[in-house]
Write a protein that binds this DNA or RNA. Sequence first.
DNA 1: ATAATAATTCTATATTCGTTGAAATATGGA
DNA 2: TCCATATTTCAACGAATATAGAATTATTAT
Lengths: 119, 119
Amino acid sequence: MEKSNAVAALAALAQDNRLDVYRLLVQAGPDGLPAGQVAAALKLAPNTLTFHFDRLRGAGLVSVRRDGRSMIYAARYDTMNALLDYLTENCCQGRAGQCLPAARTKRTPATARRKEPAT
Amino acid sequence: MEKSNAVAALAALAQDNRLDVYRLLVQAGPDGLPAGQVAAALKLAPNTLTFHFDRLRGAGLVSVRRDGRSMIYAARYDTMNALLDYLTENCCQGRAGQCLPAARTKRTPATARRKEPAT
DNA sequence: ATAATAATTCTATATTCGTTGAAATATGGA
DNA sequence: TCCATATTTCAACGAATATAGAATTATTAT
């Protein structure tokens, strides 16, 4: 993932309603949800929701397909994984958990994250 | 990490210059860097930089201390780790790598991430 | 005290963002 | 065809964002 894509994904997730939308879609699974169902669940106006969907889609975080008169939005998990990798590699020196000597926090023991040595 | 903190951290990182600043600080290590050095490295006006530092600090991503007439900014790795955990738990159903049946991507084998079962 | 250095605060401005209300488009059913 | 449903498009608006210039504060040295 490139920096500009990471910034786009971060910006897309950096908004209350949009984060809710995205989380709902992740929860919903690969089949996604019709826009109306998301609107109902989160009490968002349909036009407002379209706006947010556009952002998420622009960042590659969701996909859409039409089913009858409904638009089905689904989370694109690959993008989130790429973002996590980007943040880990670029913003955690390759290792989360205890990034550098400094990070001495109440970390759970199972969250180590590393990158395989370059080929 | 709470949702509002996650949104704040995401927003703080969702800006080109700020992401650069943060990455530079992470690279610099726990001792941090004087503001002026960051300004020079990234060619940012000192007042603009203060603005961005404020955001990063507000999101808990950096800390400051004074050293003589310099302000030393340093990355707070714990917050980034908390953010990664938040995204993994809340936006990846607890497992990155292959979040759900869907995510069939060119994933490296070493990036599994999980959360210990609740106490 | 004066001057120089380092960074912040203040003011202004152009841009982007999130939301709303009204109108338009697309699909499916009677 | 006419109508209802589902969603998008458009125009408008206040709020927040990113940047720049000028002035200010804090620290150190002379």
